[in-house]
Amino acid sequence: MNVLIVYAHPEPRSLNGSLKNFAVRHLQAAGHAVQVSDLYAMGWKAQLDAADSLDGAAGARFDPSDDSRRAYQGGRQSPDIAREQDKLRWADAVILQFPLWWFSLPAILKGWVERVYAYGFAYGVGEHSDQRWGERYGEGTLAGKRAMLMVTTGGWASHYSERGINGPLDDLLFPIQHGILFYPGFDVLPPFVVHRTGRVDEARYGAICAELGGRLDQLWTTPPIPFRRQNGGDYAIPALTLKEAVAPGVTGFAAHRR
């Protein structure tokens, strides 16, 4: 199988860097092909702008969606964007690896998403009608592929528990897992999370690697998070709200899981 790791940490000698290297070795030893997009090492341009099209802005002002659509459809995207899209097409599984900084992705990884997820590639795909509202949330260009987050935090696991001060980790990761991964079609696996990164000694590092190796061995067998498919019958279209008979009384993120 083909695995793409999109890696976002500026220090190669960090715990993240070591775990990324372990993941590559483990996957290759198991016979998988691996590519790594090391965003800091690549000098990835994070900002979305008119330079993402070889032709610049189409009009007097830059229109992020329309200019993205025009560049993608015309084969006029910046080469770095096109290369990352080719990696996503190649991959059977994608791992986004990053430290949780200020409750979200590092800016460079968010910029990777904003630029690579072009109009016509990751959004703006499919029929929009009273029966379907595009191919998204379980459908789309990346359907049939698997994805997993590999996340580190400095805080304790209890800080991210159901009653923890930082909020439940599942809620913090929902915009990434549901919005960035499930939206264009990925089957999203439960995340691999390492807490208290400042307190990792040799023994704990060995245990973390053993656990990560097990998760990597199960990339193709682990049941995905049971998000509701947009066009699967649970949502009223075009309002895109859950039908009254679906998860009655449940609101918020939890309502969008079966």
Rank of each mutant, 00 (worst) to 15 (best):
M1W: 10
V3F: 12
I5A: 03
V6H: 01
H9L: 10
E11R: 06
L15C: 08
N16S: 03
N16R: 01
L19H: 01
K20F: 13
N21D: 11
F22P: 09
F22N: 08
L27P: 01
V34P: 02
Y40M: 09
G43W: 14
W44S: 10
A46M: 12
S53D: 01
G56M: 05
P64D: 09
G74N: 03
G75K: 00
Q77A: 08
Q77P: 04
P79W: 06
D80G: 03
A82S: 04
E84R: 00
W90E: 01
A91W: 04
I95D: 10
L96W: 13
W101S: 11
W101I: 14
L105G: 02
A107Y: 15
V113F: 10
E114C: 08
Y117W: 06
A118K: 04
G120Y: 10
A122R: 00
Y123V: 07
Y123H: 08
H128M: 14
R132V: 04
Y137K: 00
G138H: 00
E139P: 03
G140M: 09
A143Y: 12
T152R: 02
T153L: 13
G154N: 11
W156L: 15
A157G: 12
S161L: 05
G164K: 02
F174A: 13
I176H: 13
I176N: 10
L181F: 06
Y183P: 02
P190S: 01
P190Y: 00
F192H: 00
F192K: 00
H195K: 06
H195C: 06
V200H: 06
D201H: 09
A203C: 14
R204M: 13
Y205T: 06
G213E: 07
P223T: 00
P223M: 02
N231T: 04
G232N: 04
G233E: 09
I237Q: 09
A239R: 14
V250Y: 13
R257G: 09
